[in-house]
Simulated assay, not measured.
Amino acid sequence: MNKIGRVLSLVLVLFSGLAAAQYPTRNITLLVPFPPGGSTDAVARIMAERMRVTLGQTVVVENVGGAGGSIAVGRLARSAPDGYTIDIGQWDTHVANAVVFPGTYDLQKDFEPIGLLSINPQLLLGRKGLPADDLKSLVAWMKANPGKATLANQNAAAQTTGVLLQQLTGATMLFVPYKGAGPAMQDILGGNIDLLVVQAAAALPQVRAGTIKAYANMSPARSDVVPGIPTADEAGVKGLYVSGWFGFFAPKGTPKDVIAKLNAAMTAALAEPSVKARFADLGLDMATREQQTPEGLAAFHKAEMDKWVPIIKAAGIKAE
């Protein structure tokens, strides 16, 4: 590199350092990879409202749905690494889509982790009229009626759960494609579909009202926010684990100082009693303080990728 090149490089480094020191000076866009109204959107808006206080700038929530969330994630990958565009990622968008919607970005290399927000219990639900009141009797009924049970297949998490349930029990079911959890929830409430897999946040009101049956929380341990729902291990199907989660990501190359400021705003929001209460109402277990760090999310995300990508590939799970 010649002298002029070295000077220009030094100027760019100094300029980027100054920009990071002043960050943020304008609105920040928080991409939500699904339409308004779902649990992802709700959490994004809760966090945006509180992070504004710490950052001193408005955090604008922008819903960019389509292709299982891969459109929004692709946009994040192409965004400038300046901290003014981030996204709220989850299992579907930042793990399963590596297989289901292979694209022009690498989920492990093209993003900077900001921090993990929550671990989200996934529930296996049944319509009220199903002739089974617990997971053991559900499996027995499914085995006695091969292929009769219908499962809403609205995303990769639901499809993966169904495949694992069949593999672990020998029972079979019919997968019915849905465009989202909302229509699937309406159909299970109406008795038009037998089984549904969703995050607790999307189903707690109906479970509490007794309009649908909750067969299992598919986490390794019981959740503090849904303590009355047994794990799949406890309910009789060992190894049926499909937990959800929410985390913030930025484009690759975002300065560490900027990541640190975003993380500080995130953790300040999560420490607020009002935010903790709203997370509990949504059925979300808040991430540990260690998981809330960029390093914590990086380790968590790698473990999720290492575990699930081979399983999804082996099961042949694809977009529908």
Rank of each mutant, 00 (worst) to 15 (best):
K109S: 13
L116F: 02
K109L: 15
N97A: 01
N120S: 14
S118F: 06
Q122D: 03
Q122I: 07
D82V: 10
K109C: 03
L117M: 08
T93F: 03
I88D: 01
I114R: 04
L123F: 09
D87M: 15
P121L: 07
S79Q: 02
P102Q: 03
F111M: 01
A80M: 10
Y105W: 15
P121N: 08
I114C: 10
L123H: 09
Y84G: 04
D110P: 04
G89W: 01
F101Y: 14
L124Y: 00
V100Y: 00
D110R: 05
P121H: 08
G89V: 12
G89I: 02
V99L: 02
L123M: 12
H94L: 09
G89P: 03
S118K: 07
V100Q: 06
H94Q: 10
Y105M: 12
D92I: 10
G115S: 15
T104L: 08
L125W: 00
F101L: 06
E112M: 09
L117T: 12
T104M: 01
Q122A: 09
D92V: 14
Q108I: 13
G89N: 08
D92F: 06
Y105E: 11
G89M: 06
F111H: 00
T104G: 08
D87T: 15
P113H: 12
I88P: 03
V100F: 01
L107F: 08
Q122R: 04
D82W: 02
L125Q: 01
I114N: 04
P113I: 14
K109V: 03
D92E: 15
P113D: 12
A77P: 09
A96G: 05
L117D: 06
V100M: 12
I119D: 11
D110M: 07
W91H: 15
S118L: 09
Y84F: 05
T93C: 04
V95S: 00
N97K: 00
A96V: 04
L76W: 06
Y105T: 08
G115T: 12
T93L: 05
N97P: 05
P102W: 00
T104Q: 12
Y105I: 05
Q108M: 15
N97R: 11
T85M: 12
A96K: 04
V100P: 01
I119S: 12
K109I: 02
A96R: 05
L76M: 05
L76A: 03
L76C: 09
